[in-house]
Write a protein that binds this DNA or RNA. Structure first.
Lengths: 111, 111
DNA sequence: AGCACTTTAGTACTTTAGTATGAATAGATT
DNA sequence: AATCTATTCATACTAAAGTACTAAAGTGCT
């Protein structure tokens, strides 16, 4: 009788643990399908768009809300240089302005 | 003996279901804490910052990458009006410019 | 009606952003 | 060595964004 009760308890515990992790696993899967945000960055897309390393740094700085002058200071180059990078980014992303570039970049999951 | 086996099966099933949902629930909670993106919008924060309905519409339009003129057309008002809203938004969000406002708004989870 | 707040809009101005163009330099590749 | 690409920077623009006011009209509330 004692060994019988122990068996039941162990079985219950195992089932609880197993189904707990099944719940966690299935939930993670379903959530990943839903939200295509906060996912990983699509590096292939960055290459595909021929966005250079420096241009990408500028793009990230834009998404931090920095001005061209602030980006220039951060990267130790002139504001002219940043303007060039931004202009090239806008062309490559087919964006009209920096906020538009951010919207597109998020959509493409490159930031 | 028969009724005894049935009870065990029912108990096992109940435990399985219960722990399955506990797994789902706890997983959802832990994921929400990690990624503060793609989560729900913090409407209390919007009120707290005293951002009006119209100002919030403008904020969303900014995050869509629209220019002041485009926002004006979309909301059927003048560009002057949009400039007023944007200026007020920048003050309320303590932002230096619209891209900075977007960064802050995302951080506060109001967009 | 009176009050508070939001939304609207204007003028005049300064600051940022963005375009177009040309050019120099460094690094990697052929 | 010659070529290609990325990065840098400048000048001279035009366009967009943002500030600082002022003010009128609409909305909701008491």
């Amino acid at each position: 009788m004692i060994s019988g009760n122990l068996n039941v308890e162990i079985v219950v515990a195992v089932i609880a643990v197993v189904f707990f992790f099944i719940g966690v696993y299935l939930n993670k899967r379903s959530l990943n399908k839903q939200m295509n945000s906060s996912t990983e960055i699509n590096y292939k897309k960055i290459e595909e768009l021929e966005i250079s390393k420096r241009e990408y740094e500028v793009l990230l700085a834009i998404s931090d809300g920095l001005s061209n002058k602030e980006i220039a200071n951060k990267l130790f180059v002139s504001e002219s240089t940043i303007k060039t990078h931004v202009s090239n980014l806008l062309v490559k992303l087919n964006a009209k302005r920096r906020t538009h570039a951010l919207q597109i970049a998020k959509d493409l999951q490159i930031i």
